[in-house]
Design a protein around this nucleic acid. Sequence first.
DNA 1: AATGAGGGCAACCGCGACATT
DNA 2: GAATGTCGCGGTTGCCCTCAT
Length: 485
Amino acid sequence: MCMTTECVDRMTSEVGIDSTSVKEANAGRNIREGSPLKKGPWIKAEDAILMDYVAKYGEGNWSSVHRRTGLARCGKSCRLRWANHLKPDLKKGAFTQEEEELIIEMHAKIGNKWARMAAEFPGRTDNDIKNFWNTRLKRQRRAEKHMLPLGVFFQEFSEDKQNKELATSSSANSDPHLLPINNVEIPTAENRNFEPSQQLYPPGLLNIGFSSFLDTPATSLRDQGLNSSWNTHSVRSTVHSSKRIRGSEAWFSDQNVDLSQAHHQYQNDGSLFTQSLGFSSLYTRNLTSNYHPSSAGDIPGIHASSSEPKLKGKLELPSFQTPMTSWDSPSSVPSIESSNTFIQSPPNEYTDSYSLSPQSSDLLHAILYGSQTPNASRNNSHQETSRDAGPDSCPVLQEIQWGTNPDAITPSGHTITSVFSEYTPSSGGSLEDHQSIAPLMGCNINQEMANFTPTAGNDDTSNHDLFSETDMYFSSTDWAHDKME
DNA sequence: AATGAGGGCAACCGCGACATT
DNA sequence: GAATGTCGCGGTTGCCCTCAT
């Protein structure tokens, strides 16, 4: 279809739009594609035409915009432009802290349902929220690039131990595709197609203490003032969730926390377990209804010593979150971004309420903002560049120190200690004390790492392979290189 | 001052759901 | 019931700006 000058004149007169402005608006249309429709940035003249059209015909019938006004834009483009920019009640500007917190909470519950989220934010568009979230992911990925390759880290801690312990522990594992970390077996780099299948973890486990922390802007962590004691044994990272959960497994192991016991516990009382970690009841419901772990064996890649029941039921997944049935035979390999999103998007149904319980919200706040930390997201984004990957900004170090800072105050006035106390099961099970929860939260890592004993691959390359070559656990190897320099 | 990296944002694309013919 | 059109959603890309080196 060719929009001739005569056509434009005729149509614009019908609609009452100045034909000159239409001609002006249509200048520079996408000639290359041979399309009568224009692509790319909108100009004011186009906006004016579209606004006139909406004023006259109302929202909708986007496909007729081109027909009725001669505006060389497709209906979809018009709808998008209107919805994202021209709509009168749109709220522009940075997200407030409250909005950010709500986004985080909602994303934890419903995943990448931007439109549904936007419905809860008057004046905000799904695109706004999506961009906001993706920006966080970018930041997150950047932070990951600078984190410590744990192989190096572990080696530093265990060089003096591994030689004498290697013989006994390595003999315990005969699977060449698995590198044991104590009792936890981890697929080696040989399983290149392997991608952690996060949905096979208890959703809440992934969601609190790891991914939420992951979301925390680097400066938010740095600004907690927890930056004074960097040393060569400190981990520098915001760890990818898939890495973090793996680390947590090692921590469980190192803390003599038996995963099977832990899982038994939340099989018996999912709420206790999840709440102990600050999970909302939403996750509890998932744990108790869809997820029935009874031992570490329910978590692929963790090979418990006994046989266990498998996952029951099918978890509802966001569109991109293709379920995988096993660690080494993924039906698809989601991107890192997807993985992140996945982890942060437990496959839960939309619930009747977005709000976490006050207590879990407290813990969420504690995780996200630490001690009276002013939100440092976009306004400080430029301070969060690669410079923040320096020793002073080691997120995990801050996790460690944060974990040792019992007086950190949540926005609602609770100390970290009190929140932990509130959520720590008072008795029974292997998660009965802070010590067992702390590893989940990244606390006391020094001790645990110090206890860590590589049981295989006691050379540089094997660790390196495990933690960086796969691109799934650790995205960067340049940290060690930097460190050498 | 030049340059590259990263952040933020706008817009497009592909796909699926739904309505209409 | 099939074909077609429309709309909405989620994912991705590209551009521009800022900042650090």
